[in-house]
Amino acid sequence: MHKQWRHLRLWRRFFAQAVVRETHYRAHFLTTLLVGLVQLGLGIVPTLLLFGFTSEVHGWSRAEVIALVGVYQIVTGLMATFVAPNMNRMTSYLTEGELDVVLLRPVSSQFYLTLRWINIAELTNVASGIVVLVIGLVQSDLRPGFGQVVQAVVLAGCGLVLLTAVWSAMSFLAFWLQSVGPIGVVYLSAVEAGRYPLVFFPVAVRAFLTFAFPVAFATTYPVRALAGDLGWGWVALGAGLAVVAMTLVRLLWRRGLLTYASASS
């Protein structure tokens, strides 16, 4: 347990440092906030237009989809805060030999590469996501009980872990491909599918979005949990998949590390 505590303490330091750093760049904070709000507004345009032509699609009302957009905004905001800044550096870690310095430190190198950098300003998107979620819930007359909220939070957490695992796996391909900048763009485009409920997609695509590129756990399932449609079995499934995904990424990281031959020396 001692090791886990040390990593948690270390992460708290990363966070504190990121907060201090952010106070130096107040304009960056403001532009991130503004761009985030505009993108949130634009992202919701197709949904609003869609429900101008119909009142429900496969059992989802407009208000429920708005709640789902809120959850999407929260999850992608958390990813942009804690994961994205690290994934964007993966190419330079591996091709410029910065990984050498990380490997020498008394810390799990995978942990360090995945969570070292934090972009505090993106937390504004989490805040706006919470607002959208609340608006959606109020409009849809959903009154989730305590148990349902716990289910939703755990499922969204599983979604967060699963998406991080997928993005990490895509980024760790840098061990073999050298440059993974473009792969990050593919991830960010594909994750847009999470803006819509799973049932909006054909059956084959649903399986893909649940097990291969698991945005379903990040957005659809939490909202269905809030509506009281899901049992604890789904929560267990989500947690199980998250553990499997983390194990696989760990194995991939180990394999990749074996091929690493430094870049400079």
Partner: peptide
């Protein structure tokens, strides 16, 4: 890879709007 990202959004939109249509929108 960039072009793969380029067609993600149109495909997502395509599937969404076709679902809306078949659902009676």
């Amino acid at each position: 890879i960039f072009m793969l990202a380029n067609i993600c959004m149109p495909i997502i939109s395509l599937l969404i709007w076709r679902t809306a249509l078949s659902n009676g929108a």
